[in-house]
Amino acid sequence: MKATTPSQDLLRGVWRENPVLVQMLGLCPALAVTNTVENSLAMGIATFFVLLGSSLLVALLKRFIPNEIRISAYILIIATFVTIADMGLEALVPDVHKALGAFIALIVVNCMILGRQEAFASKRSVVRSLLDAIGSGTGFVIALFLMGAFREIVGMGSFLGIPLFGDGYEPWVVMILPPGGFLTLGTLLIGLSWFQRRRKEAADGGTAKNGAVQEGSVA
């Protein structure tokens, strides 16, 4: 693994290696519970908590965990934190817990979390691991927030439950339904790819063709 500075550890996961938008990890929650900002944030924070807790524990215990059973041990640690988050949410914000339903428990199988343990926390110091977890967790929250904000604003005309456009707004119900999840993330990814191409073209001196214009094709 390349040597990185602490600030890189922190910032990498936020944008350049954003778990959802770039690495396509944790798509399941990113699509399933992002129909409102509130749900997105709750899910993001719960995941953040699990990531932080398990990274801390893995980094602390890495010397005591034999290599052969490390995956099982990581899963055990993650599952413990997920269960804590599950119970905590149910006790503190029961309505949000009801809205998220089974997807809190499914944080266990979010490969982003296991990936960070495997790739980082098991090899680096406690502080570095925490920085990395904070970075990736923030990136995850940001991605979920973007999705949730878009879907709620278009799909319900509100933000965090506060109406934005007055009574007459016709909500685009589809955006808070399952197809809206797929379409939003798909559009987001296509937008990002378009944006990156634009930047790359600008860097290349604008010689490359605009990708949206396809030449007349054969077959």
Binding site: L25, G26, I71, I75, G115, E118, A119
Partner: peptide
């Protein structure tokens, strides 16, 4: 999500680990 699909920049059996 599967444990086997760890991100590409994370070799599951980093040599230094094994040794």
């Amino acid at each position: 999500m599967s444990a086997a699909t760890s991100p590409p920049n994370a070799p599951t059996n980093a040599p230094e680990n094994v040794q």
